[in-house]
Design a protein around this nucleic acid. Structure first.
Lengths: 200, 200
DNA sequence: GACGAATTGGACTGACTGGTCCAGAGTTTG
DNA sequence: CAAACTCTGGACCAGTCAGTCCAATTCGTC
């Protein structure tokens, strides 16, 4: 049910924010309704007034978290139209990630939701799709700028890059070291470099 | 506590097997002691006779699962000493994985254990280490055979390959399609091909 | 300010689950 | 074969947690 007053709107908003924090801190499956309520300064009846059940609250939290992350990604990759710019954005991504090593925001959720409520899981699938789209667009622009052979499939390269990012973040988290992510992206960039059209 | 009779040995073994099945089916966090007991035809007192608590049972299950998977990997990559052999083994890996798309056996566990009991988590870290070792050894043999420039770091390439495998399996699971894994490995192999020493 | 709708507090319920305990059955060994 | 050790069945306990319910309060509107 949608809130119909400003007060209700604010209550619902506090619930979603608290749910996002809980999901980020302890994971989807460890989200405790009572804990979210306490953090939001809410009570049971409020939550069940706006959400049909725990799964609905989780879905809202997952959707919110994905949106926020995609905003950042869109901003970062939106302006990339050269290999140097790509390298620079990815370097920033790595050094940022090295600071926490806490797993990919989307990947972590997707992983926890493989056997979770389908609507929430679907949000993560869509988020990956959007991310892949950003990468494809960036590589396409790089290709249009002549830094990538026109016989290359930007979509395939983008998917390969996404796999490298996900796998790299994951292994880096598991190992507690930024090396896997760095190596993966360095390798991917070296490969892209090798695909530059020879100017002859 | 270790079993001291053949009967006890068998009881403990049934418990571990049932725990592995439960972990594979529903995930580590969803392992229910009562369910494992029922599947093993065991009772509470048996389990708490051989394991200090639920976490200890989980650790045994995780260790067992990793061992079994590593056996397969060791066998598959142990004989690889050419790029063609590597390509063939990886192709088998992909077509096998395409049949279930259920996530990497080790990766799934590692992911669920990021905030889990440390001893169990450590088993997965070690498993990744062993896997990386198999890949490094294979690439080293390929290098020794002259199919890879001697200036290349086999360890880095192996890590890149591992990242591609993990990320590929993960995204393939999320999407329900083998394409991410295929694209990732095809790309990795294309890169390795491009590193062949030029014979001049 | 009055009336209906929206919102809120929080006690309570019922299901689930990990862990304890002890009496009894089976096995080994001197 | 008898004592000592090992193993087993399952009742029971205590804690946790999602979801229900209703009375009370606040809000929007006329």
């Amino acid at each position: 049910m949608r809130p119909k007053t400003r007060r209700g709107q604010a209550s619902r908003e506090r619930l979603v924010e608290a749910a996002v924090a809980s999901v980020v801190d302890h994971g989807v499956k460890q989200l405790r309704v009572d804990e979210v309520l306490a953090a939001a300064g809410s009570s049971k009846s409020q939550m069940y007034h706006y959400f049909s059940d725990r799964d609905a609250l989780i879905e809202a939290a997952v959707a919110r978290r994905c949106e926020e992350f995609l905003d950042l990604l869109g901003q970062a990759f939106g302006g990339v139209s050269s290999l140097d710019a790509l390298r620079s954005v990815l370097a920033g991504f790595v050094s940022d990630y090295a600071g926490h090593l806490s797993g990919c925001p989307v990947g972590t959720l997707a992983s926890e939701l493989t056997a979770g409520p389908e609507p929430a899981r679907q949000r993560t699938v869509e988020a990956f799709g959007a991310w892949e789209g950003y990468l494809t667009a960036a590589l396409q622009r790089i290709q249009d700028a002549g830094e990538l052979g026109s016989d290359r499939d930007a979509g395939e390269l983008a998917l390969g890059l996404l796999v490298g990012l996900e796998g790299g973040m994951f292994l880096s988290q598991v190992r507690g070291s930024d090396r896997p992510l760095r190596v993966a992206l360095d390798t991917a960039l070296a490969y892209l470099d090798s695909l530059r059209p020879t100017l002859d």
